[in-house]
Structure formats: structure tokens, C-alpha cells
Simulated scan of single mutants.
Amino acid sequence: MPTTVLVLVETINDYLPILEHQGFHLILAPTPSERAEAIARHASQIDAVLTRGPLGLYADEIAALPNLKIICVIGAGYEHVDLKAAADRGITVTNGAGVNASSVADHAMALLLALVRDVPRCDAAVRRGEWPKIMRPSLAGKRLGILGLGAVGMAIAKRAAAGFDMSVCYHNRQHRSDVPYTFCSTPTELARASDFLIIATPGGLGTKHLINRQVLDALGPNGFIVNIARASVVATADLITALEQRRIAGAALDVFDAEPQVPQALKTLSNVILTPHVAGLSPEATQATVELVGKNLTAFFAGQPVLTPIEMPSSVGSAVM
């Protein structure tokens, strides 16, 4: 009998044949109603679940799946997967950390360029028949701060330093002796040392609201912030107030607290650029992500170690970056 995988992710349909060709039986449930129906109808058949961080898998759902053995999370974040419930059942959880790093880093730099150079407003003006001469800062020679120097943060740092001649500093859970970038001991220190600040750390309780009023004030009225990580890292109310009062120059956001709902205040501000959580989406990244899921599933059901296991609750509290 083939292994049955419940697929909750809505963006990977074109690449699901990768898993089917490996012999896995897939149940697709990309909407909340389909998800609830699939769990109710096929609970005893489901051996594995494929999800992503914002979609998660909750304790009651885990409890409803008596034969669930492994949860595979697309991307690095797994903030809405109930790890305690999984650990209590001995369920393995994997993620896709680093697989889409290039795509996310590309998007981060695209947002930074569009924000600092005010590309959307220039585009809109030309479409209206206007020809404004808007003078905006250059990226060259500026100071880039990166919160979280994992795979995505490293990819951003390399693009910024080598491609735009920027100096790079970072804040991380631990100092990294293997990089040429400057370590800052706190997010506030990082913001103070930066012209531009990019958020590239995982979500979860360990990083919640690391970026708050104090950090935004340290970034200052000429500073720009880009978030391609998780909305929970930034105190949204503090960010909106700072933008409205021009205590920072602007923000570009790919992630939001209650996706797909976006605060109206962010939509109305002229110093904000918004994208719909697409930083990690590219054909290359999606294919590589699904291939990694296939490798993890194949290894697990062959009794071999999975490639990208997530640390379970005994050590999760310290794994914030």
C-alpha cells in the first residue's frame, strides 16, 4: 500500500509529479475547507503531511491523524507546526531551510532597490503622464544590517557586498567567526549601525517583536527596513507609527501578521512597498524544495535519517536564528 501524503501547500502543484513518480499517494487540500474535509475523511490513511510555516499543522489535527509519522515543512519557517504535539507522538518534522535562499535573497534586494530608489512611485507617475525628477539615495557604499545570518542572510550579504559595494553588519543568535561581516550584539546596535535593515531570521517565540520602537528609532529617519522573513519578528503597530511619523524613511514587506489580510494603514502609506509573501517562490526554488521533500520522505520510510530534521521542543527554545 503506497505511503499517503496530505498536501496542504497551495503553490507547488506543477512539481507534485516529482513525489508521485517516487510512489507517494497524494491528497491535495490547499484550502481550509478541503483541509478539514481531508483530515476527517482520510485520517487513518495519512502517513505524512506536507505544509509550510504559515499553514502549519495544529495539535488537534495531529491528534486526528492516528498514523501520521512525519511532517515535512516547505521553507525554513515552521512557526505554526505544533512541535510539542508532534514530539509527544514521536513524529519526525523536517523543513527546507536554505533551499530557496537564492530566491528570497533576490526578492530582498529587489524590494530594497525598489524602496530606496522609489521605483513604484516613479512608475505610477510616468503612467499618469508625469515626468518627475525624484532624487533618491544610492545603495553603493551604504551600510546594510541583516537580522539573522543563516542561508538567506548570507545570500543577501554576498549580493550586497559584492554587487553593491555595501558594508555589511549582522545580528545573530551567535557570533560567526567564518564571515567577514561585522557582528552587532543586539538588534538596536544593528539598527544604529545600518542605513538599511533586512529581516532574515525565522519566526517563532524566540524572535517575536525583536524589531520594536527602540530598534526603529535607532534606525532613524533616513533608514529603510525590508522584511522577507516573518511578520512576527516586527511589532507591526510600532512599524506603522514609525512610518506615519516618518521616524524611518520607508519599509518593504513581503510578510504580514494575518495573511492574506494586510493592515489598511500599510496600504495607504506612500513610503511602503508590499508584496504577497512571494519571496521564496521561483520555479528553481520550488522544484528544489519538492525534491528535498521527496528525499526526506524516501529516507524516512526506508528507515534512514532524514536530511533536514527540525530540533524538537527540548531544544527549540534556543534555536531562534
Rank of each mutant, 00 (worst) to 15 (best):
P32C: 14
P32Q: 06
P32R: 04
S33L: 04
E34W: 06
E34G: 03
R35T: 03
E37W: 09
A40G: 10
H42S: 15
A43I: 06
A43N: 12
A43H: 14
Q45L: 11
Q45G: 02
I46G: 12
D47R: 08
D47W: 06
A48N: 09
L50I: 09
T51G: 03
T51R: 00
P54Y: 00
L55Q: 14
L55M: 15
Y58C: 04
Y58P: 01
Y58K: 11
Y58D: 06
A59S: 11
D60W: 00
E61A: 03
E61W: 03
E61L: 04
I62F: 01
A63H: 07
A63Y: 05
A64C: 13
P66R: 11
P66F: 01
L68V: 08
L68D: 08
K69T: 01
I70F: 05
I70W: 03
C72L: 01
C72W: 05
C72A: 15
C72Y: 00
V73C: 09
I74H: 05
I74V: 11
I74D: 00
G75F: 00
G75A: 05
A76P: 11
Y78W: 03
H80L: 09
V81M: 12
D82K: 00
D82C: 13
L83W: 10
K84M: 09
K84L: 04
A85G: 03
A85N: 02
A87E: 12
D88F: 04
D88S: 14
R89L: 13
G90R: 15
I91Y: 01
I91F: 09
T92D: 12
V93I: 13
N95W: 06
G96Q: 04
A97I: 07
A97Y: 07
G98W: 07
V99I: 15
N100G: 11
A101T: 10
A101M: 11
A101L: 06
H107E: 05
A108L: 05
M109Y: 05
M109T: 01
M109R: 00
A110Q: 03
L113G: 08
L113F: 15
V116C: 13
V116E: 14
R117K: 03
R117A: 08
P120Y: 08
R121M: 14
C122Y: 14
W131N: 11
W131Q: 07
W131P: 13
P132K: 07
K133C: 06
K133R: 12
I134C: 05
M135F: 15
R136W: 07
P137S: 04
S138W: 08
L139H: 07
A140I: 05
A140E: 10
